[in-house]
Amino acid sequence: KVLVLALYDYQEKSPREVTMKKGDILTLLNSTNKDWWKVEVNGRQGFVPAAYVKVL
């Protein structure tokens, strides 16, 4: 399983997205889209901007 680090806070803007806080460790589920990556955080799955996270 691939983990990513949240570099910035992100507030979800649609039901398909998830909120994350800077420093959160998320599970990367899909990174085929260069702009939006699907992650799991706190038991929820959704998209975050790829530029806001870094693969650990």
Results as ranks from 00 to 15, higher is better:
20 M>T: 03
36 W>K: 03
54 K>W: 13
29 L>D: 02
29 L>M: 09
22 K>A: 14
51 A>T: 15
27 T>S: 10
47 F>M: 09
21 K>P: 01
47 F>I: 08
34 K>P: 11
17 E>F: 08
53 V>P: 00
56 L>R: 03
16 R>I: 15
8 Y>E: 11
44 R>F: 07
29 L>Y: 05
45 Q>S: 13
52 Y>C: 05
35 D>M: 15
22 K>N: 05
23 G>E: 02
42 N>V: 08
18 V>N: 05
4 V>Y: 09
44 R>N: 08
2 V>N: 08
35 D>I: 13
48 V>H: 00
43 G>W: 05
15 P>I: 09
6 A>L: 02
36 W>L: 04
40 E>K: 07
24 D>R: 03
48 V>A: 04
21 K>Y: 13
6 A>R: 01
15 P>W: 12
56 L>W: 11
45 Q>D: 07
14 S>M: 08
39 V>F: 01
51 A>P: 11
52 Y>A: 07
8 Y>N: 10
34 K>A: 15
20 M>H: 01
19 T>A: 08
1 K>Y: 15
26 L>R: 01
52 Y>G: 06
4 V>R: 01
56 L>M: 09
55 V>H: 07
39 V>L: 04
13 K>E: 12
25 I>L: 09
36 W>Q: 03
3 L>R: 09
34 K>D: 11
52 Y>D: 04
30 N>E: 12
26 L>F: 07
16 R>K: 12
21 K>W: 12
38 K>F: 14
49 P>I: 02
18 V>P: 01
6 A>S: 05
52 Y>V: 05
2 V>Q: 09
6 A>G: 03
47 F>L: 09
23 G>P: 00
46 G>A: 03
42 N>K: 11
40 E>L: 09
23 G>Y: 06
24 D>N: 07
36 W>N: 02
22 K>Q: 15
7 L>I: 11
39 V>E: 00
5 L>C: 06
30 N>G: 07
54 K>L: 15
27 T>A: 08
25 I>P: 02
47 F>N: 04
31 S>G: 12
43 G>C: 10
44 R>T: 08
22 K>T: 09
2 V>E: 07
56 L>Y: 13
8 Y>L: 12
50 A>L: 02
29 L>I: 12
35 D>G: 10
10 Y>F: 09
22 K>G: 06
35 D>A: 12
35 D>H: 15
47 F>Q: 04
12 E>T: 10
43 G>N: 08
53 V>T: 05
45 Q>W: 09
51 A>C: 10
54 K>Q: 13
4 V>S: 04
15 P>G: 13
27 T>Y: 13
27 T>V: 15
5 L>I: 11
31 S>N: 15
2 V>H: 14
12 E>D: 05
52 Y>W: 08
41 V>D: 05
54 K>F: 14
22 K>R: 12
55 V>E: 07
31 S>T: 11
7 L>Y: 04
44 R>P: 01
8 Y>G: 06
28 L>M: 05
25 I>G: 02
19 T>E: 04
10 Y>Q: 01
28 L>Y: 02
3 L>I: 08
26 L>Q: 01
14 S>C: 07
1 K>L: 14
7 L>W: 04
10 Y>V: 01
14 S>D: 13
43 G>K: 08
44 R>I: 09
56 L>K: 04
20 M>V: 12
9 D>N: 11
46 G>Q: 02
38 K>Q: 15
26 L>I: 11
27 T>Q: 13
7 L>A: 04
23 G>W: 06
33 N>F: 10
17 E>W: 03
5 L>F: 11
47 F>H: 06
46 G>M: 05
40 E>Q: 10
17 E>R: 04
21 K>S: 12
50 A>V: 06
4 V>I: 09
17 E>G: 11
34 K>H: 13
47 F>G: 01
39 V>S: 00
42 N>Y: 12
3 L>D: 04
30 N>T: 09
47 F>V: 07
4 V>C: 10
16 R>L: 14
37 W>E: 01
3 L>G: 03
26 L>M: 12
39 V>C: 06
51 A>N: 12
52 Y>N: 05
40 E>R: 07
8 Y>Q: 12
1 K>E: 13
51 A>D: 08
28 L>S: 02
27 T>E: 15
20 M>F: 12
52 Y>P: 00
11 Q>Y: 13
48 V>W: 00
12 E>L: 08
47 F>P: 01
24 D>W: 13
48 V>K: 00
54 K>N: 08
4 V>N: 01
34 K>G: 11
1 K>C: 07
14 S>E: 07
34 K>E: 09
41 V>A: 15
41 V>Y: 14
19 T>C: 05
7 L>H: 03
6 A>Q: 00
15 P>M: 09
24 D>E: 15
46 G>I: 03
20 M>L: 10
6 A>I: 02
15 P>A: 14
16 R>A: 14
30 N>S: 14
